[in-house]
Nucleic acid binder design. Structure first.
Ligand SMILES: [Zn+2]
Ligand SMILES: [Zn+2]
Ligand SMILES: [Zn+2]
Ligand SMILES: [Zn+2]
Lengths: 134, 134
DNA sequence: CCTTAATTTGTTATAATATAACGTTTGTTA
DNA sequence: TAACAAACGTTATATTATAACAAATTAAGG
């Protein structure tokens, strides 16, 4: 039952492999240019694959950048709870794995007692490298 | 010194007033249609006003919706630390005011000890109304 | 007051991101 | 093997956002 994520379609596999090889988040049209040799010709083919990969937790969208990054956290397939660290200078993006943080946010209730099934958190600052260079 | 935020330009005032009157987040082109009577004719005029209003903390961008909402939290001008509650059903959006949460996130350090100057958190779930209706 | 810099404006064009609509093909399941 | 769901291919179009340039307005200092 937990092998559904392996049964990716051809286009889904192509798009995922590009994203997994990348050092950072990729934009949809950059993915498109990268996969045109492999037969994917139209934006919609990319977006459809992206939608599916997001749905099953293999990748995430960095909303502030309209870009897509491979998941680095095995629990994302279930939880849909994501947190990222983004460098304002070099644009380096890293998915944050932090059990305390994810527990804190998953259990968070607002003033009216509302609880949430899903969240996305984007932190901004300077990464180690960029801090040194300043 | 704390009166700079009052010295908005004409276009900035127009755009802000539309956003403040709205019940929920507005999209840039929806704002454009709403202000064409008042002399703003081009997207860029709206986007420039939006940029400024975001910079001074009067409004925020809901990244997952590409929409803009008036700030509901006097501390945002300084902190650039934002959190929202978003209903998946009716799309109702509310800025979360919660001192514990903002302190927790402002003080958060990742595994490498990196601290962040800015964050944006978007929670998704069902609002009270929509929960009842189910 | 005058001048100089900075900000804001107006305008046209275009870039970048994303989806609609349609019909076909492939894969699953009973 | 029929029936359904998922994925595909394709064209066109919608939506979101910025580039580039010149003019007008505003702020600040001498
Ligand atoms: Zn993940
Ligand atoms: Zn960096
Ligand atoms: Zn705010
Ligand atoms: Zn709702």
């Amino acid at each position: 039952m937990t092998q559904k994520q392996e049964q990716l379609s051809k286009n889904q596999q192509i798009v995922l492999s590009i994203i997994e090889k990348a050092k950072g988040p990729l934009k949809a049209y950059s993915i498109l240019y990268n996969v045109q040799k492999r037969g994917i010709k139209a934006p919609l083919q990319v977006y459809r694959a992206l939608d599916k990969l997001i749905e099953i937790g293999k990748i995430h969208k960095i909303e502030s950048k309209n870009a897509f990054i491979a998941c680095n956290n095995s629990e994302c397939e279930i939880s849909k709870a994501t947190a990222f660290s983004i460098c304002n200078n070099c644009e380096h993006v890293k998915e944050i794995k932090n059990t305390k943080l994810s527990k804190y946010l998953s259990n968070f209730q607002d003033n009216s007692g509302m609880k949430y099934k899903k969240y996305n958190l984007e932190f901004f600052g300077l990464c180690k490298n960029c801090k040194l260079k300043q």
